[in-house]
């Protein structure tokens, strides 16, 4: 009998244990699934009072620089393009997060669309996190070039990802759920390099 309860689970929930077991056998890399978050795609004119108005509702300022992120009260604001941000919240319900931000953005010609289920998140931690990602990601991941505070929409293997630097040894991968199985399979395969010698 299939579960009919409206519980929110990570699309890769069935792989959580496998990732934990693998991570225990790796040197300097840990792979982990992150809890689903409420998220909106915000489109807004970056000039003018719009971003400040949205910031009040979002719980923190929007990042002014391209390809950077800032912390919000309960989530992140990630700048995806000149007039596009991804705003996440671990506290709000998706429909409330969308409604509040849309209401704040609308007077300035902006719009917020619920994309909570449009991406899922994998956390890659450890001293070898960047070397692991560098086996499939072409952008310059040296900490000096991609320090904490940076984010980038790019490719990992053949999948589009939003890569976020939380620290030198701590990165987040936002990925489309349909690609998440591929991305995790890819990471698991690449991580074999980092297995502790048995």
């Amino acid at each position: 009998m299939a579960d009919t309860s409206m519980l929110v689970r990570h699309p890769l929930e069935t792989r959580r244990t496998l990732l934990a077991e693998l991570s225990a056998e790796l040197d300097g890399v840990a792979l982990e699934l992150e809890a689903p978050l409420a998220a909106v795609d915000l489109r807004l004119d970056p000039a003018g009072p719009g971003p400040a108005a949205v910031a009040e509702v979002a719980g923190g300022p929007l990042p002014p620089q391209p390809d950077t992120w800032t912390g919000l009260a309960a989530g992140q604001a990630l700048r995806l393009g000149p007039d596009e941000w991804l705003l996440t919240s671990a506290a709000a319900r998706p429909e409330d997060w969308e409604f509040g931000l849309d209401e704040a953005a609308a007077p300035f010609g902006g719009a917020a669309v619920d994309v909570s289920a449009q991406r899922t998140t994998v956390r890659v931690r450890g001293a070898s996190a960047r070397p692991l990602l560098a086996s499939g990601c072409a952008i310059d991941l040296r900490p000096a070039s991609f320090p904490r505070g940076r984010c980038a929409q790019t490719l990992l293997g053949q999948a589009g990802v939003l890569l976020v630097a939380l620290a030198d040894d701590d990165l987040q991968l936002f990925v489309r759920p349909s690609f998440a199985g591929y991305v995790v399979d890819w990471l698991v395969d690449a991580a074999q390099e980092f297995r502790r010698p048995s």
């Binding site: 390809d67 393009g81 980038a152 790019t154």
Partner: peptide
């Protein structure tokens, strides 16, 4: 693999374009 400088994101590999 050529680099193309996206005016917004900076230099990226041509496969992204």
């Amino acid at each position: 693999m050529q680099l193309i400088a996206c005016p917004w994101c900076g230099p990226r590999e041509e496969i992204e374009f």
